[in-house]
Design a protein around this nucleic acid. Structure first.
Lengths: 340, 340
DNA sequence: CTGAAAGCGCTTACAG
DNA sequence: CTGAAAGCGCTTACAG
């Protein structure tokens, strides 16, 4: 089409794709560029993808974007992705994981990469081969696909040390209803860490809600009597959103925080510094997670825009198990505020 | 490919697309279906789009998905879209609108529809023709493209009536920094509505922040002295997120809400019922907005999955201006809670 | 009802 | 350095 104002479609293709290095004369480059300007030409992404066998879109699959946490993950991804690739998001309903049908439709787009937040077994099983895949926040799945995780152990250890230093000897845990690995792991690490420190972990497995203040508030109202009667003086919540609900419900019930009950969360959402009392929380750096995921994608397939160095295979840091060592771990750290 | 187990690609195409009505024999249908099962065949979306000239993806372009408001818009869209179409989201950075380059990349995907939240002039100017377009929450742009808006007038009127009935005679407004039409309109309607009711509108145009509690809190701390000295006893905030920040800052400053200062928002986010004091707000039904947008898209191009009725041109309800009447308006209603 | 064939708009060896 | 040509995997008239 654009050849109308230049010469030959092959040349046009080379120019608009910046592959002119010693293959197209300057005069032709100029003519094509001029024509592009005039006609407002833009490469048809669909046709281009078909011909190349892959597109330039990267899809992030996340269960619930209304969680402000994802905002940071997204900006990390976009920052690292640059302009060559385009980020598109696919969301499922609140607390629901994407279905097999969703997955197929996604893969049929031939994405340059699929970034999946907190996948479940079913999703991974249904995933047809073909698209480069990176898992985010999926502890325990490192063997199934390249994964970027948080290093929760350190943050949770610091949290428990802090609670112990405040004199707490019995703690409760308000879980997330979302059945994802990360919450599973949080619970286990808390339970185990408590035991190691001689803290009683008062388990009420039913105490769990979706990631929202309302749901958490309702659960807290329901189970607070049991925690109180069991002598719980500190409640660890699965996310900051859960903690907000607990803070609100505690205020309604006239429970003083942190005097009667200390409350903590995970994430360090922006609002956590300004809720009252300000929330003690284990910070999960979403932006770093997003960046790490893109890097893992790039490592997987020479996806680098400017083909920096010919990807030199990284020297294994140890003889043990290079594959394991390669799993990027994003540090989580404790932030102490007034709620504990 | 899949013909290996059946016969002819044309037949396969007809079957997988469900266009068999009197065109394919039952025995062939069965054979194709069986082959699809066996090989796990899935239509290549890219090639299909190229051949058909359009894809089955609908793209929602929104400035900031971390605002929980969009969660509702998204579920409304998905519910109305059904399974034939796939929703993908494109986000820009916080408070930033998509650029011309973004727009082109989006259109190059040949989306079945482009849903754009709160677009600005530049975006609309750069938008290449081609993709069916619907604007969401873009008052004043009804002439540029099919648009679905909130009917803010009623909700704002009710809000001002309520404030007046509580004895407030001087009000302030904490604006959004995001330069979009909807905020422009909120401000104007408040200013005008106040005048009509004999309420003083104390204008501080600089008092504005991005849609986040932190930003709003900082602005409030900064401008509260001026509002107070001007005799302001009620502060209307551009969104609930702004109001949360004000509530938090007011508590820090020892300002009693609502005794010393009444605070209100817009949106009715889930958390608004549980913040303390609970927030009076003008509810903006995001889900209905999303549904309305998809309906507008479908009306625009026979996008209906099952081709219900041959789109009968709706009878104009009045002789006045059918085009204007066609703009769907989603009602906004006041919800009174303890903060005012 | 069915298959052969053209065409969607690009990209990429390939021969000059 | 440049253009003619094949091919990416589908869909859709078209002729049987």
């Amino acid at each position: 089409m654009a050849e109308r104002a230049g010469t030959s479609t092959a040349t046009v293709s080379l120019v608009v794709n910046g592959k002119t290095a010693g293959r197209v004369s300057q005069s032709n480059i100029d003519r094509v560029l001029a024509a592009v300007q005039e006609l407002g030409y833009v490469v048809d992404h669909t046709a281009s993808s078909l011909a190349k066998g892959t597109s330039n879109i990267v899809i992030l699959v996340a269960p619930d974007l209304s969680n402000p946490f994802y905002g940071r993950v997204i900006s990390g991804i976009k920052a690292e992705l640059g302009n060559e690739y385009q980020l598109l998001l696919s969301v499922t309903g609140e607390g629901r994981n994407p279905s097999a049908a969703d997955v197929h439709r996604l893969v049929a787009l031939r994405p340059a990469g699929l970034l999946v937040e907190a996948p479940d077994d079913e999703f991974l099983r249904d995933l047809p081969a073909g698209a480069p895949l990176v898992l985010l926040d999926a502890p325990g799945r490192e063997t199934q696909a390249p994964t970027v995780n948080f290093d929760l152990r350190g943050g949770i250890g610091a949290l428990l040390d802090h609670l112990a230093s405040q004199g707490h000897t019995r703690i409760g845990y308000l879980d997330s209803l979302t059945r994802t690995e990360t919450f599973e792991l949080r619970r286990k690490l808390i339970e185990r860490g408590a035991a190691e420190r001689g803290i009683d972990y008062v388990a009420i497995p039913e105490a769990a809600s979706l990631i929202s203040p309302e749901g958490a508030a309702a659960e807290f109202v329901r189970y607070w009597p049991r925690w109180r009667d069991a002598g719980v003086t500190a409640l660890v919540c699965a996310t900051d959103s859960h903690a907000y609900g607990v803070l609100g419900a505690a205020r309604e019930l006239g429970i003083r925080v942190p005097d009667t009950l200390a409350v903590t969360g995970f994430d360090n959402l922006p609002a956590s510094a300004i809720v009252s009392p300000a929330l003690t929380t284990v910070e999960l750096p979403g932006e770093a997670l997003g960046r790490g995921a893109v890097q893992a994608l790039q490592a997987q397939r020479g996806m680098t825009a400017d083909a920096v160095d010919p990807v030199e295979p990284a020297e294994p840091r140890s003889a043990a198990d290079p594959a394991r060592l390669a799993v990027p771990l994003i540090g989580a750290r404790l932030i102490v505020r007034a709620s504990s």
